[in-house]
Design a protein around this nucleic acid. Sequence first.
DNA 1: TTACTTGCAAAACGTTTGCAAGTGC
DNA 2: GCACTTGCAAACGTTTTGCAAGTAA
Lengths: 144, 144
Amino acid sequence: MNASCNLIKHLKENNFSCTETRKLLFHVIDEHIQHHFDADELFQLIVADDLPISRASMYRTLSIFETIGIIRKVQFTDRHAHYEYICHRNLHGHTICTKCKQVVSFHNQTIDKLIKELAEEQGLSYFSHTLEIIGMCRKCLSER
Amino acid sequence: MNASCNLIKHLKENNFSCTETRKLLFHVIDEHIQHHFDADELFQLIVADDLPISRASMYRTLSIFETIGIIRKVQFTDRHAHYEYICHRNLHGHTICTKCKQVVSFHNQTIDKLIKELAEEQGLSYFSHTLEIIGMCRKCLSER
DNA sequence: TTACTTGCAAAACGTTTGCAAGTGC
DNA sequence: GCACTTGCAAACGTTTTGCAAGTAA
């Protein structure tokens, strides 16, 4: 289990009780999820592991995990929600080319630090962020 | 109308015809939208202005506007899509509270500048960006 | 003991689609 | 004239909810 992410502590701090369902679901996420996932992928894992968790409970639990900051929603291009397991704290941004749609990840500590400072300035207790930069990559630029 | 955003040109370049519905909808967005909006807000504007545009057409048109780069989807924490009117080039970030879901916009020139520099460093000809900071707001933090 | 949590099935939600009529070029 | 676009209503897939039974503290 990811040491930085103490489920029980997070639940207690937010007055949620620590149930079997929540522990099981957290375990599935912590064990299988690298970056992001959607609800149905997660439910397939639940089915594969034959866990006693219904779709309804999964959704209710995801909502709680989001509230206590264990996961967060991210937007891709399809209709349903995707989630990111925050505990990995994999801070990174993306550049996206408007033409070829290529997505490139990057890390930049200066910006990460500034963003954290800005969060506090705005009165927000920082959990995570996403940064997406839209533009045109060199290749597409030269092909115009 | 925003001079930087020529609807007819955008449509033609992408082989979409220039219909009354598309012109009307663009006008509504260009006139009323400051930052971001969701489909229902937009439909309320359509109803208020008594425009002959159905929900179905609005969704179909939004999808086209997204394709031709007039708007883009942004993710907040709720289920439905939010859009951002790109033409305003209104660079700003959002803070989002994990608990109460409140979204607050902010401007920060230092970060905007850094992000532009970073884009060039990454080989991207900068067009725009989105920055979303996730955390818990003071109010929710104090209510825990 | 008492409030919270669960599974089930049904409902709700935002969005998409098939179709026939209408419009742009 | 012909392909594209529209409104309508029905369908879609995801997520939420009411309820009765079960569980945590």
